[in-house]
């Protein structure tokens, strides 16, 4: 078995004559926070869907949590967590009901569910809001509950698709505290973001341009290689070279 939690080898996905993901290769280690950057339309979502077992690659190979993305997609789904800004929680269900629902889907036992539910409510300081509908809570709290729910089954890797949009600078950083804690406990975090300061919180990042990975490495090293101070500068200089239209 490989030591990597996520492993892609010459991964390619075409839609008709359009190559959304163009021959990408990467490895992500256990407990690593990996930032997956790129302009809108660069191919991030397509790659992420392959890693989550939701889409088959046209060619190449991807293994996630020890399973093949093509032939063992169902097994991958049990080993990962996924959270996106667009879909995360059921607004008309209460906090507790959401936790119970997702824990049920992930097959937690009744006892585990009870423990987990209490632990999440306690950790997020939600005691008096646990029976409130999620729609009534501020966005920053929805994001943190989403994360807790996406990781309720202690997955090997959690995929976060722009998890922190729209909240204030303090709340945004509180979310990253959760990411750090999870990574410290050994969970791998694979995250996309449009906040370039958040890219710098990652252990390593890659930047996709036109479906291919243009650069990959530690944020500080990438800045040094490009002779610039911030990842934003690296990002802008690379994304300006893109030829294809944003999504």
């Amino acid at each position: 078995m490989s030591e990597w939690v996520i492993e892609a080898e010459q991964l390619t996905r075409r839609f008709g004559d359009f190559t959304a993901v163009d021959n990408i290769s990467l490895q992500v280690a256990p407990g690593e926070i990996f930032g997956f950057l790129g302009a809108n339309g660069a191919g991030k979502t397509t790659a992420m869907r392959i890693f989550c077992g939701l889409l088959e690659p046209t060619s190449g190979r991807a293994r996630v949590a020890g399973f093949d993305a093509m032939s063992e997609a169902e097994k991958i789904k049990q080993q990962i967590g996924y959270m996106s800004q667009k879909f995360s929680l059921y607004g008309k269900l209460t906090v507790k009901e959401n936790i119970r629902f997702f824990a049920g889907i992930y097959g937690l036992s009744r006892r585990e569910l009870k423990e987990k539910s209490a632990e999440i409510v306690d950790r997020l300081g939600l005691a008096s809001s646990a029976d409130k509908q999620v729609d009534e809570l501020p966005l920053g709290w929805k994001q943190r509950i989403s994360f807790a729910v996406a990781t309720v089954h202690k997955p090997k890797v959690v995929f976060l698709d722009e998890p922190t949009g729209g909240v204030d600078p303090i709340v945004r950083r509180q979310f990253w505290d959760m990411i750090y804690e999870s990574a410290a406990s050994g969970m791998t975090v694979f995250v996309t973001t449009h906040y370039m300061d958040e890219a710098e919180y990652c252990d390593r990042i890659s930047i996709m341009v036109d479906g291919a990975i243009a650069v990959m490495g530690k944020p500080a090293e990438l800045c040094a290689q490009h002779g610039v101070a911030t990842i934003e500068d690296v990002f802008v200089s690379l994304a300006r070279k893109a030829t294809r239209q944003g999504d």
Partner: peptide, 10 residues
Amino acid sequence: TTGVDPVSRK
């Protein structure tokens, strides 16, 4: 510009 990448935002 919400949800838009840094280059498109610029």
